[in-house]
Design a binder for these strands. Sequence first.
DNA 1: ATCGATTTATTTGATAATCAAACTAAGTTT
DNA 2: AAACTTAGTTTGATTATCAAATAAATCGAT
Lengths: 139, 139
Amino acid sequence: MKNQDDSLNHAMIEFYEKLSSWEMAVVKDKGFSLPQVHTVEILGLNGPMRMKELAQKIGITTGTLTVQIDKMVDAGLVVRVPHANDRRSILIELTESGQAMFAEHDKLHMQLTHDLTAKFDDSERAMLLDFFERINKEF
Amino acid sequence: MKNQDDSLNHAMIEFYEKLSSWEMAVVKDKGFSLPQVHTVEILGLNGPMRMKELAQKIGITTGTLTVQIDKMVDAGLVVRVPHANDRRSILIELTESGQAMFAEHDKLHMQLTHDLTAKFDDSERAMLLDFFERINKEF
DNA sequence: ATCGATTTATTTGATAATCAAACTAAGTTT
DNA sequence: AAACTTAGTTTGATTATCAAATAAATCGAT
């Protein structure tokens, strides 16, 4: 099934490109930069996280992230808290204001998700969720 | 079904974040910048495109894109060709070398897609493709 | 236990990406 | 044809990014 694999691959890439473009547009409308929103999004979904892990998830170096986090601390979005077991590490955590920003951004995503799957029936939507969860597990 | 909608939304975001992270890592390994690969990817999937359309898809201004395309022309990845009907516009088109880069990058995506859906059976994979295509159509 | 190697985060200096605004040229409208 | 809009480029300033150097904490192997 070479052709179908190709189609699936390209459909997936197209989805990624479109979501990426949507995200850029949404971010620019608000007063925040893409890395900042990205950070809020990741912390909101996964909870507090070490610098290194966060940098890997975003796909930037820790040096770059340090600068970004500095700005976000100044903006009151996140705080640095010491790591319980490893004194080299710190955890980056959303403040209440950061959580509010996550909630607001998440709402936009929710609306988008809703729109994109408007023509799906309940069982299809459940299947789509199952597919995404299985794919994410493999990642 | 508020909870399920939430789950679907977050699974979708998680997928996007992971794909985004994967893309960053892949790009950095090669000698090219993210915008360059992004451009090649979009042109490879959609064919030649005007500056404005390309900028919108990437999510940057045309001013920024002009600079990027300059570099990519120098690198031999793309060419500017005049638009047939509108002399204000130009089309950005992949060169052979650009197409080769797309093919190589696409291969990596293909491998990823394959790995992520390794545990899917044929009918599930077909359904996933159908879902993605319907979602992309709504975007 | 201790010394060397590794890991974590930060800092620094240089480069690259980005934007907004001004500009040129080509199309569109009235 | 004059006024307006659109497409792409240029410019000047800002921001993001990296690689490499640094400092502190942990780990590992003797």
